[in-house]
Write a protein that binds this DNA or RNA. Structure first.
Lengths: 334, 334
DNA sequence: TCAAAAGTGTTATCCTTACACCCATGT
DNA sequence: ACATGGGTGTAAGGATAACACTTTTGA
């Protein structure tokens, strides 16, 4: 394990000292695979008797790069063709699962976010597309403040108040206010911070699990589906990243069919960001940023007046530095 | 290495199948440690006879989390106290270094970005603070277009023209235009894309190294210091991330002393982003966003009229969702 | 005919950009 | 006195947010 008194890696083989072969180590690749169908942001989940989990696979020796490894087994397993793929984070807490003293087997997991255009029926019978709000019901503000906050707010406040001392209490209160913005502005991107607070406060099952406690009448958990290991944390991170990225890079279009209506585009953005947008301003923004162009066709499948079909204008990538769907503030619609 | 016919991880131990113990595997942690002194963005580099490299160390068994592991050995080795630390990326190309058929030893490396307030003389004699523009001279536009572009532009164009077929050529041309924005707008954040293009075009030493070619009169390399393995790529990513993040999170302040003048703050932002900013507008933005508050003191160390000393106002974190130093466009100054 | 979704137009307001200018210190 | 950096005022232009309103379809 060599903490090594030698100061820094030797020059001959720079990475020789940078890592020590460790047999008690395994590396996995996990994927948050996202699609949007109609009003729902979907994620591919695997059920196997135990808790639901994200599709995960081993890093194999013949994979040249991590991303290539991920693509190859995901496409083999789920028969989904992945579009945009990006690395999210590498999780490596020593005790990611059952650590028994010396036998602590470190399971490193490299998490990826992948976007697909259409949600196929899922190759594997155990895999299913689920709305991501199934795991994070408190993240969907499209119909206003979710009722679940009647439980969240007092619960978290109690947790802050129950801090061992004043300093910790103040810090907890600050984190709450930052993540949830009770009272003031809420930032739809802080999905991970919110999950982590609920985790620490023991309000999600995973948080209790860590301490070997089961949910009980005294220690109730919020509604919202539990996942294996730290997969729900990975999902939270994926949502946060996507919600952020959508604003400055044209990633939504990776989730849309080749041609679509402005209404459908707005639905997709709302589904992902979890807030309602002001229709007229949304359309104006999209059009004047010249993110889309006419196909010349129209569809009447959306109900009401038939809508023009548009397509993504790839050229914008070359024209402006950060073309994204800026969210024109949460305006009440409907 | 079991491609495994079983479809997906078993429920019993979710990560058991997700990673296979692989003795030909090592995990390292690398750190891009950044400080700003005066006009220069500094990075801690280690020299050891061979190529310069980033401080790197092994992941040890007793480290509870990856970040904690990084902090502990960096602080032990360099006697720097790390402030803000964030994970950048996990690099895991199979052939990160000397792969000999079956003996291909995969060296996974988790790269981190760390910010420090003051650049201490560096504990290790082999470690030194270097301006990051030493490695990326083409990224410093503070004094206008760097002369080095007289070599870069034709070189890259030639590479695009020399593509094996028209489709590849068009794609290369598009990537060039996106990353470098020859003619039109340049995006200071696309540091990684630019480096990767120069790498692929064989214009940086690392790119030639990959093919076992040495720089020669026919295949000249650009000025800009070479680094070991893929460390320069890590540095490119770190710069890109920091340049991006500075705009929507108050990270610059992690690099500033407790109190500073607005001029010093502007110098730091310019050093990091590599562009000049319009003085008056910069100040107005900072002040009206209420990112700083008066200390009541002043200093005359900056030359010219003494300047007020200000400090970061931590409360902004609670007030607005994305408080960052938005760059008020590159205006000529001086 | 009416609900539902698409699409147009206009206005007040704020933020960004740019320009011109004054202030206090060291040499 | 003048160079250097610090600091103020103000006006033009563009983007945003909020309004109200028309159009075209299917049930």
């Amino acid at each position: 394990m060599s903490p090594s008194s030698a100061p820094l890696p030797s020059p001959a083989r720079p990475d020789a000292a940078a890592g020590t072969a460790d047999t008690a180590l395994s590396i996995g690749l996990s994927a948050v695979i996202v699609a949007v169908t109609g009003d729902d942001p979907k994620v591919l989940a695997v059920r196997h008797g135990g808790h639901e989990q994200l599709p995960s696979g081993p890093l194999e020796r013949n994979h040249r790069t991590l991303e290539q490894g991920l693509r190859s087994w995901v496409e083999r397993q789920t028969h989904q063709v992945l579009g945009h793929v990006e690395q999210l984070y590498t999780f490596g807490d020593r005790d990611r699962r059952e650590t028994d003293g010396e036998d602590a087997r470190r399971a490193l997991s490299v998490a990826y976010l992948a976007l697909v255009r259409e949600a196929r029926p899922a190759g594997d019978a155990d895999a299913a597309w689920e709305s991501w709000y199934r795991y994070f019901p408190w993240e969907d503000w499209r119909d206003g403040r979710p009722a679940i906050f009647d439980a969240i707010e007092p619960g978290l406040r109690a947790w802050a108040a129950a801090a061992p001392n004043a300093a910790v209490g103040a810090m907890r209160a600050e984190r709450l206010s930052l993540a949830f913005g009770f009272g003031q502005t809420r930032d739809e991107e802080r999905v991970l911070e919110r999950y982590e607070l609920l985790y620490e406060a023991g309000m999600v099952a995973e948080g209790l699990r860590e301490h070997g406690v089961a949910p009980s009448p005294e220690r109730p958990c919020l509604p919202g589906a539990e996942m294996a290991v730290d997969h729900r944390r990975m999902l939270a991170l994926a949502i946060a990243r996507l919600r952020g990225k959508i604003k400055y890079r044209p990633v939504v279009f990776e989730l849309m069919p080749p041609s679509f209506t402005l209404g459908q585009l707005q639905n997709a953005v709302e589904a992902l960001s979890g807030v309602r947008l002001h229709k007229q301003n949304f359309r104006r923004l999209i059009e004047q940023q010249r993110l889309v162009e006419e196909t010349g066709e129209a569809t009447s499948e959306t109900g009401g007046r038939p809508a023009r079909l548009v397509r993504f204008r790839r050229e914008v990538l070359l024209e402006r530095p950060a073309p994204g769907v800026r969210l024109p503030s949460a305006g009440v619609r409907r």
